[in-house]
């Protein structure tokens, strides 16, 4: 499903620490948090290497930003070794020192939402590639160029529930949790080089890729989120900018939740099927309920046919 590209609105904050440097945004053309990061970085005075595999959307983003000369789009699949090589060659061409990296790519496609008993090995491989392996490779690649002792900062985006449980999203949660752990150890091992590493994790966000709610008017979200609304793309991007910026010079190894307080509350899935209450799309709920039925009563359909 293709969603029309729209530039997400961002506030006019100009975060300090970007004026003479270059930032790398992995996954910038989504129209979501990545695109908001690109805008905030340019506004802060940074130049930006934006890595994305989607040529059309990358073009849309560049056009929407008036083909800013400081924006260098790199069209590649960052989950492949070719992608890492493309990133390296873009870094070679950067005319300013690279001081900031944000890994935005991640998530789970609808086909990969499923019960733990149903998910397969290929889905695990895909979850690793999409949510952790690429980010550790980009972090290594960029950090090697950051260790000249000057200030630098890496932010990995994650999800707040990764340090808890994520029924129906077990591979997603586990791979994000792996990234969170890597980030903490990166903070310790890269600290002596002046490189900070932090996580910004989001809760329920209104983004172009959110699973659409056919009939929802957002009432459910008002009930379960202490701040009473879904977050905006700009909310996550602003927090990531804080962590990247010189406002957070003594912050490393931390995980900042941008979730309207949702992580303060109890589990937000319903016993016993454990379907998350925020999954409001009826087809998606129906699909999970169908999986559940087939686990509870494997020959249910066969018996019904007879």
């Amino acid at each position: 499903m293709t969603v029309k590209f729209e530039l997400p609105p961002v506030p006019e904050f100009a975060f300090p620490g970007f004026a003479d440097s270059c930032a790398v945004v992995i996954g910038g053309a989504s129209g979501g948090v990545g695109s908001a990061m690109v805008q905030l970085l340019l506004h802060a005075g940074s130049s930006v290497i934006m890595v994305d595999h989607d040529e059309e959307r990358s073009g849309d983003l560049a056009a929407a930003l008036g083909h800013d000369v400081r924006l260098l789009p790199v069209l590649t699949d960052i989950t492949t070794e070719n992608g890492i090589r493309d990133l390296e060659s873009a870094l070679d061409r950067a005319d300013r020192p690279v001081r900031h990296l944000v890994n935005v790519v991640g998530g789970v496609s609808r086909d990969d939402i499923g019960h733990f008993l149903h998910l397969g090995a290929d889905q695990w491989t895909r979850a690793l590639a999409t949510n952790v392996t690429y980010a550790l490779r980009t972090s290594q690649t960029v950090a090697r160029r950051m260790i000249d002792g000057k200030r630098a900062s890496i932010v990995n985006l994650s999800v707040t529930d990764a340090d808890r449980s994520m029924p129906w999203f077990s591979f997603y949660g586990a791979t994000r949790s792996a990234l969170d752990s890597l980030t903490r150890t990166m903070a310790v091992e890269l600290g002596p080089f002046g490189v900070r590493a932090n996580t910004v994790s989001w809760g329920l966000i209104k983004s172009p890729r959110m699973h659409p709610a056919r009939t929802s008017e957002g009432n459910r979200e008002r009930d379960i989120i202490p701040l009473g609304r879904r977050g905006l793309v700009a909310d996550v991007a602003s927090a990531a900018m804080f962590m990247l910026s010189d406002l957070a010079l003594y912050v490393t190894g931390q995980n900042l939740a941008v979730d309207g307080g949702l992580s303060l509350c109890g589990p937000h899935y319903e016993h016993t099927e454990n379907i998350p209450v925020f999954l409001e799309s009826e087809p998606a709920r129906d699909a999970l309920a169908g999986q559940w039925d087939s686990i509870v009563c494997p020959d249910w359909q066969r018996r019904r046919i007879q």
């Binding site: 977050g231 602003s238 927090a239 804080f242 957070a248 900042l256 939740a257």
Partner: peptide
Amino acid sequence: ASSYITGQIIRV
């Protein structure tokens, strides 16, 4: 800039 952050700890 932190309008969706509540109940959290930032460790400096």
